[in-house]
Design a protein around this nucleic acid. Structure first.
Length: 922
RNA sequence: GCCCGGAUGGUGGAAUGGUAGACACGCAGGACUUAAAAUCCUGUAGCCAUUGCGGCUGUGCGGGUUCAAGUCCCGCUCCGGGUACCA
């Protein structure tokens, strides 16, 4: 009887499902382990073979941990709000909820075929009102909170109000949009509306007027991480800067904690580094410059206060509030003209042009260190959103300032001994200071410290830490997202009472903005609360994915996001697997979101994801055929012969190519125009060329996991995806090796079952050699799973089965444990064979077998003996031989080795169980 | 520009500083078969010797540390990813 994977897999998937084998509940008698996959956005094109890579790895790990005695939480769900469904709705009028539901069903169907051990009873869908109630709830909590920097924690906004009532802003140390100052009396005499406006300055979820990335094509604003190279992440449309009133989350308040937290979690260095760069902490000084003949003062931020003697001009951002203060009447026209041109440039234009532009304001500032007069310019290379929107320019030691100085012919002063700054600035923080007054002779590091001290001592400014991390813009002018639980009274936002949640998405006639440019929700008929209009924008994609890992812990709870009990037990994610593309989006936002919930007592851990593994991308492997140009017969030439002709390469569907050999008949049917195609073959075959490209429809290189499952079975797909290479590496999908993995499963099958379908298994006692094979494999499998080296784990199974086949070993005492350790990788076939062995319960819930070290030690160890690093012969020694005995044996052996007799042994190095190295003279 | 990775046979890839190339694909040869498929066996880094055991060279390039380097250190080259006027 042959290995009939199709039947077996269907049977056991049904068995697991019917018996709810993977249903998980709190069990305080067992240690918990939480394994999470980044849940997918269910796109219309379904899963391709790259998606399950991480899911397979996490599935193997979950199954392994469960067998090791852990209570494993391994849930799955769908990130169901998103732009593609909405775009589709705009085109077709089909409600996004319907499209989304269809896509989810398709995904679910595909996932189910791969034999994952998810507890589907815990499924969450972010577009489900029962789920997004808790997204809205969290938003309201953020609205009702501010960040107390002294306590390093979010606190209820009423604490701040009480403080204002008693002391005004005195003693307030809170994260804020701008610095405010008022007394208690002033606060108490403010109108309600005025008070609300002030509080917006502090709330963690606040309505703010900020420069946003506006994408006219999509008709919505985008967060920084949704803009790539000045184009929208979705669709690649140009993005411009625009001042708009938007909901924002005060993520920046958590900058330092987000940075510090990285040291407490097990993520890859590169991912932590990305986050550190994104947070962008920089220490420097904020310094005040007086403006000549004016009362104005300009504050700048610099990380190089040591270079102050090299400041030859100052630059303001075009949007800076300082601009009107310092522009002289003579320069007014020029400045206005410049600002106008800058406004019309998109982010992308700026990047592509990279032209140096700017305009002089007519004013001068005074260098506070030496009193020199420095011209104040305006240029778009200075960003309004960072620091103070104004810089002191040091062309000698900053490349951007240098380019500007060159262009406008401004002086450049070298400040470091021995450097030439005529053609290039010297940006490195090293060397000895010159031309710098009292800083002369100091090293750069010393000079920075000395200058900082001088600034503080002389009241010229203060030391300041700046972060690049911006507050998250939280409004989207779209339909398919969570509505804000907010209504407007007197034009001031008020939160909906919790009892009114969830605020469900209303029906609209079209999914487009209104004629007046309002978001789609403005089309809804009854979009108000007690007569007051409701907010018409919706939340962004990351809202629903920011706390989903907590909801899985208690998905059906109607009274809380997660009960205290469930959260105390499941805590945070022990292992999170997903792609690197979320490094600066989801993984920042959800850390922020969780920290907020931690502060407010709803999450018991400060960091949501303890260990994170990034699975690599699976790229497509495209195939090409070569059509001969200007050929009447539509001929194609095989890859190896194409140099003899003038050809055009054409992408060909990889599903009609096997091992780069084209299925000619299938090709003729693929496209009508190829029906009469002729082929110039090599050895009777047509070989295709190949290239590694992104997996996508346009390259005809999409491989659907369903097809692979159909052909080889889920167990083969699982093993093969792991076997392909290291989990974290990017690699192309190449079916060339899949036969080998499939062959391994067939071999395993044959260890148990004869070709007639009889059970081969005997109850004979295993030999030491067989036990050695088994225990070696158990040990290796454990080690490999623990370090996520799943490709080598698969290899070790192959070696094991090959060895057992060679020994014709079909002994129960060997094969039963083998099934247990193979079960996480290939659960279906193991269940079937386990069943044949007469075992009743599921092998996937069996207890893991521990290896017995006594079968691992070799009785005799063969030591390679090397002389001066060169291998000479092998010396056999008992495993328990002492180092002295080994040395003695080498010396004795030395005498019988003629070729070395006139050389003197200087040293004998014995590496236990590894090698003996003999150092000889000459 | 900056920050991270990476470079090993024809291919994907193994190697806690200790016999480089595990395992798999592919290829070649063989067995079984009327034949094919399936299955099994042998060989497979390169070069030389293969009716001798074997020898030499080899982990992108150039140096170094070490008895011993794919692995550690210094200097390059190329490839991949992230990020960018962040002062």
């Amino acid at each position: 009887m042959e290995y009939n994977f199709e039947e077996i897999e269907k049977k056991w998937q049904k068995f697991w499902n019917d018996n709810k084998i993977y249903k998980t509940d709190i069990d305080i008698s067992k240690p918990k382990f939480y394994v999470l996959d980044m849940f997918p956005y269910p796109s219309g094109s379904g899963l391709h073979v790259g998606h399950p890579l991480g899911y397979i790895a996490s599935d193997i790990y979950s199954r392994y941990k469960r067998m090791k005695g852990f209570n494993v939480l391994h849930p799955m769900g769908f990130d169901a709000f998103g732009l593609p469904a909405e775009q589709f709705a705009i085109q077709t009028g089909q409600h996004p909820a319907i499209t989304t539901k269809q896509n989810i069903n398709r995904y679910r169907n595909q996932l189910d075929k791969m034999g994952f051990c998810y507890d589907w009873d815990r499924e969450v869908q972010t577009s489900d009102p029962k789920y997004y109630l808790w997204t809205q709830w969290a938003f309201l909590n953020m609205f009702e909170s501010f960040y107390n920097k002294s306590q390093e924690s979010a606190r209820p906004i009423r604490e701040l109000i009480q403080h204002f009532e008693q002391f005004g802003t005195k003693g307030v140390n809170a994260a804020q949009t701008e610095e405010l100052q008022f007394t208690a009396d002033e606060w108490n005499s403010k109108s309600d509306k005025e008070k609300q406006e002030v509080l917006m300055n502090y709330r963690i979820a606040y309505l703010g007027i900020t420069m946003v990335n506006w994408c006219p094509e999509l008709g919505t604003v985008l967060a920084n991480d949704e803009v790539i190279n000045g184009l929208s992440e979705r669709g690649g449309h140009p993005v411009e800067q625009k001042l708009m009133k938007q909901w924002c989350l005060r993520v920046s308040a958590y900058s330092q904690r987000l940075l510090d937290g990285l040291n407490t979690i097990e993520w890859t260095e590169s991912l932590k580094e990305s986050q550190r760069n994104w947070i962008g902490r920089s220490e420097g000084a904020e310094m005040v410059f007086d403006v000549l003949n004016s009362n104005s003062k300009i504050q700048v931020f610099t990380t190089r206060p040591d270079t102050i003697f090299g400041v030859t001009f100052m630059v303001l951002a075009p949007e800076s509030d300082y601009v009107p203060l310092v522009t002289t009447p003579e320069q007014q026209k020029e400045v206005e003209k410049y600002i106008e041109t800058v406004k019309h440039k998109t982010e992308r234009d700026r990047m592509i042009e990279k032209k140096v532009t700017g305009v002089f304001t007519g004013s001068y500032a005074i260098n506070p260190f030496n009193g020199t007069k420095i011209p104040i310019w305006i240029s778009d290379y200075v960003l309004a959103g960072y620091g103070t929107g104004a810089i002191m320019a040091v062309p000698g030691h900053d490349s951007r300032d240098h380019a500007f100085a060159k262009h406008f012919n401004l002086p450049i002063i070298p400040l470091i001994e021995g450097c030439d700054v005529t053609n290039e600035s010297f940006d490195a923080k090293e060397g000895i200071m010159i031309n710098s007054g009292f800083l002369n002779g100091l090293s750069v590091t010393e000079a920075i410290q000395t200058a900082n001290k001088y600034i503080e001592d002389n009241n010229l400014g203060h030391i300041k830490v700046n972060y690049r991390l911006r507050d998250a813009i939280f409004s989207r002018q779209r339909y398919w997202g969570e509505p804000f639980p907010v209504y407007y009274e007197n034009e001031m936002p008020s939160p909906l009472p919790f009892a009114q949640l969830p605020l469900e998405l209303p029906e609209v006639d079209k999914f487009l903005p209104t004629e007046t440019g309002e978001p789609p929700l403005a089309r809804a008929k009854k979009w108000n609360y007690m007569g007051f209009p409701l907010e018409t924008s919706t939340m962004p994609g990351f809202a629903g994915s920011s706390a989903y890992f907590l909801r899985y812990q208690d998905p059906k709870n109607e009274n809380a996001l997660v009960s205290k009990e469930a959260n105390d037990y499941w805590r945070n994610v022990d292992l999170y697997i997903g792609g690197t593309e979320h490094a600066t989006g989801h993984l920042i936002y959800s850390r922020f979101w969780n920290k907020f919930l931690f502060d407010t007592g709803f999450s018991c851990e400060d960091e949501p994801f303890k260990k994170l593994i990034n699975q690599g991308m699976i790229q497509g492997r495209s195939n090409f055929v070569y059509r001969i140009n200007n050929d009447d017969n539509c001929r194609f030439v095989s890859y190896g012969l194409k140099e003899n002709y003038d050809t055009t390469p054409l992408h060909v569907d990889v599903n009609i190519v096997e091992n780069d050999i084209l299925d000619i008949e299938a090709f003729k049917k693929w496209r009508p125009e190829f029906e009469k195609a002729e082929f110039i073959l090599e050895n009777g075959k047509y070989f295709c060329g190949y290239a590694v490209e992104k997996m996508g429809k346009r390259y005809h290189n999409v491989v659907n996991p369903d097809d692979v499952v159909k052909k080889y079975g889920a167990d083969t797909l699982r093993l093969y995806e792991m076997f392909l290479g290291p989990l974290e590496a990017s690699k192309p999908w190449d079916t060339a090796g899949i036969e080998g993995v499939h062959r391994f499963l067939k071999k395993t099958w044959r260890l148990f079952i004869t070709s007639e379908g009889n059970l081969k298994i005997t109850d004979e006692e295993p030999t030491p050699a067989e036990l050695k094979i088994l225990h070696r494999t158990i040990k290796k499998t454990e080690e490999d799973i623990e370090r996520f080296s799943l490709n080598t784990a698969v290899s070790s199974f192959m070696i094991c089965v090959n060895d057992l086949t060679e020994l014709k070993c079909s002994k129960r005492k060997i094969l039963e444990p083998l099934l247990i350790i193979l079960a996480p990788f290939a659960p279906h076939i193991c269940e079937e064979l386990w069943f044949f062995l007469g075992r009743s319960h599921s092998v996937t819930t069996a207890q893991w077998v521990d290896f017995d070290p006594k079968y691992l030690i070799e009785n005799i160890i063969q030591y390679p003996v090397s002389f001066n690093g060169k291998m000479r012969y092998k010396l056999e020694m008992p495993a328990d031989a002492t180092i002295e005995a080994i040395e003695q044996a080498v010396l004795e052996n030395h005498q019988s080795q003629k070729w070395i007799e006139n050389k003197e042994i200087k040293k004998i190095i014995v590496v236990p169980k590894k090698i003996i190295n003999v150092v000889v003279s000459g």
